[in-house]
């Protein structure tokens, strides 16, 4: 196995007429956590959504294990092994926790019982709440459900859109711990975060996007040490 799992190669993309992303390059290698950070409106979430086929890519390509998947509709992207957790409204609030997980496995309905068991092992808090409506859970627990739901398929890569937004510090730590656990179980992760410090601290590599374009690239530590970035994101926060 060589080459990146997921590769966003020089894409220009946007909604309708407006172009939001200008020549974005991001790749995720096997067994790594990649963080994408940047100020509000930099196009971080949009970059993730372009992978999902949720917006119109005008030029450039997206490849999964070398295979081009540019502008593939979302359900097929998921079938090919890209799992995605949106920032908000990422669980079916009227469905129970277990039903949420079952829906996560829509594209691979076989072996449901074992998969559920794996997820309850990875997210022990959810086992006791499996019959509860996901809408009745706290923000942190919902995030766990959302991640478990995304992992129900054999994900080749997991995309997380601001998983800690709006959570308390206690839950934030827990989420980042879980992200490391998921990586250790063999699933590489692309994570978009406002919370740059913690994200870069967890990530193997990071990208800084500004105004819909790449600004900095490096390992987590390099970026954390960079003065520019520190001034831009790290100083003001926490």
């Amino acid at each position: 196995m060589s080459g990146p799992i997921l590769e966003i190669d020089g894409i220009h993309a946007g909604y309708g007429e407006t172009e939001i992303l200008h020549d974005i390059n991001i790749h995720v290698d096997p067994n790594e956590i990649v963080a994408v950070i940047g100020p509000n409106g930099a196009g971080k979430s949009t970059a993730i959504k372009s992978v999902l086929g949720l917006l119109n890519i005008r030029s450039g390509a997206i490849r999964l294990n070398g295979e081009e998947i540019t502008n593939t509709p979302p359900d097929q992207v998921v079938t090919r092994g890209i799992s995605y957790v949106p920032q908000t409204q990422n669980v079916f609030v009227n469905l129970s926790v277990q039903e949420n997980l079952e829906m996560g496995a829509w594209t691979r309905p076989d072996g449901m019982a074992e998969r559920l068991e794996e997820m309850y092992a990875l997210f022990p808090d959810l086992r006791a709440k499996s019959r509860q409506a996901a809408g009745s859970l706290s923000g942190g627990q919902r995030q766990m459900v959302a991640m478990a739901k995304a992992l129900m398929v054999d994900a080749k890569v997991l995309l997380l859109d601001e998983p800690t937004a709006g959570l308390s510090p206690k839950y934030r730590g827990e989420i980042f711990q879980t992200i490391r656990n998921i990586k250790n179980s063999g699933v590489p992760i692309l994570i978009v975060e406002q919370n740059a410090k913690q994200a870069l601290g967890t990530a193997d590599r990071g990208y800084v996007l500004v105004d819909g374009a790449n600004r900095h690239t490096g390992t987590g530590e390099e970026l954390l040490a960079d003065r520019d970035i520190a001034r831009m994101f790290l100083g003001g926060r926490e």
Binding site: L52, L54, P74, D75, V77, V78, T79, Y84, P86, Q89, N90, V91, F92, M103, G104, W106, T107, K149, A150, V153
Partner: peptide
């Protein structure tokens, strides 16, 4: 929206 990105057809 969520159903679609969950892979539900």
């Amino acid at each position: 929206d969520l159903a679609r990105v969950t892979g539900i057809n």
